[in-house]
Amino acid sequence: MLDPTQPIALFAEATMGSLNAKMAEGILRYGRNPVVAVIDSTQAGKRVRDLCTLDSDIPIIATLAEAQALGAQVLVLGTAPSGGRLPQSWVAVLEQAIAGGMSLVNGMHDRLQPMFADRLRPGQWVWDLRVPQGDAPPIGMARAAALDNTRVLMVGTDMAIGKMTAGLELTRSLQEMGHDAAFLATGQTGIAITGRGIPLDAIRVDHAGGAVERMVLEAANHKFVVVEGQGSLLHPGSTATLPLMRGSACTHMVLCHRAGMETLDELDSVRIPPLRDVIALNEAVARAAGALTAAKVVAIALNTARLSQHEAEAAIRQVEDTTGLPTADPVRQGAQTLAKAVTSAI
């Protein structure tokens, strides 16, 4: 886990402001550590606020040496290339960081600990976020269905749609309302932010549901549990939603969607059905024809980052009219609407 006092630099080469830099943006928005800079040589000289919706004066710089001069002690790989593999062009930067005494936080599938283990000095470390910790989880057995708490699963119409962000905002709103709520991370960004969780996409498919189940059982003392979503039932390359549903035995769901999306981001041939049909699909899969918990979608988190304020308000009204469900952009408006929907549906 990151010591929250350590200054960090986010490496987002050629991606800052794009969907691939969602880890960098997530840490900038919710992380506890001071961020000295974002490294992206293609955007050097700008500020974070110039490239995304965060009102942040953190500089975009060109080189690791500049970050070290600003006091960075940890380099966080804040971008995810296609397939989550480590680009060969990054190796020289990582070697420079290790030689300079920096620690590394790695969200890629390729492990860095074995690469640098023999070069680490006392107090220096490498955190490979996508390495499952502890013993292999048991096979899922629907044990979470016996819990008496409220388990909210964030589901989406696509990958990289804002499920983690909406989940963190929902958890914060529930806590501000006085409820005992916990956020359970299931991906590398959520783990980096909270310091705990499971890297679901690195767990063998036979054990994925059991890993989610074990995590939910360990959080059984919380009245509200918000489970970070992954992937989408609509995406042909995603298998993550099913073990999340089965392992959490969710009682509620919040659907996450980007305003105006008609097809998947990287698959123009896959059309996003009407949201009412997407809601029905997720509810049908969750209840498994009555064999498992009958979770309902109780609200919609609408990502309106690409819209003006007026356009966002119109899009939210349209989604509410077509689905009949409370809708809000949790970043632009806060997640109180979502939290009220969850608590009123108990």
Rank of each mutant, 00 (worst) to 15 (best):
D55K: 06
L234F: 00
V331E: 10
I193V: 15
A280D: 15
R29L: 12
L70T: 00
G140V: 15
R121M: 02
M141H: 14
F183K: 10
P59F: 02
Q230N: 12
L264M: 01
I139N: 09
A185P: 08
N20Y: 02
N221W: 02
E283K: 09
V38A: 00
G101Y: 02
Q124D: 08
T171G: 07
A160N: 08
G190W: 02
P132D: 07
G210N: 12
A92K: 05
P7M: 06
F116E: 04
R317N: 10
G190M: 11
R204V: 15
P137G: 11
D3R: 14
K46Y: 02
L174G: 11
S238P: 00
R143T: 12
L104E: 04
H257I: 06
F224Q: 09
A291T: 04
R130Q: 11
N149W: 00
E320F: 07
D277A: 10
E95G: 05
D50A: 01
P274W: 01
Q88G: 12
V155Y: 00
T63H: 08
N303H: 07
E213W: 14
T165K: 09
A145C: 08
L184M: 14
V91L: 04
P273N: 03
R306G: 02
I60W: 01
L10Q: 02
A146D: 11
A341W: 07
T186A: 06
A192H: 05
A146W: 06
A142T: 12
L94F: 04
T186L: 03
A21Q: 02
M159V: 06
M1K: 11
D329M: 10
G123A: 10
E313I: 00
A280F: 08
L264R: 00
V35M: 04
F11K: 03
G260A: 06
H235Q: 00
A166S: 15
A301V: 14
P132F: 10
G229E: 01
I272M: 00
Q6W: 14
N149Q: 08
I279W: 05
M108K: 05
A208N: 12
L120W: 01
W127S: 15
H235I: 02
E176P: 01
R111G: 04
I346S: 15
E320L: 05
P4V: 12
L51Y: 01
V91A: 01
D148K: 06
G195D: 09
K223H: 13
A24E: 10
R258D: 09
G101L: 02
D128N: 12
L174A: 09
G167P: 11
P4R: 14
G187T: 07
E95A: 03
G290P: 02
H257G: 06
G123L: 10
L242H: 09
L10H: 06
R246Y: 08
S238V: 04
L338F: 12
S308W: 08
V76F: 14
H207Q: 15
C256I: 08
N106R: 11
V297N: 14
R271F: 01
V131I: 09
A192N: 05
G324V: 14
L19C: 07
R143I: 13
T343M: 15
Q230P: 12
K46I: 03
G231S: 03
A160T: 09
Q175R: 15
C250E: 03
L2G: 13
H179N: 11
E213H: 14
D118W: 07
Q336N: 15
E283R: 06
S344K: 10
T304G: 09
G26T: 04
A142I: 07
Q73H: 09
A249N: 12
I39D: 01
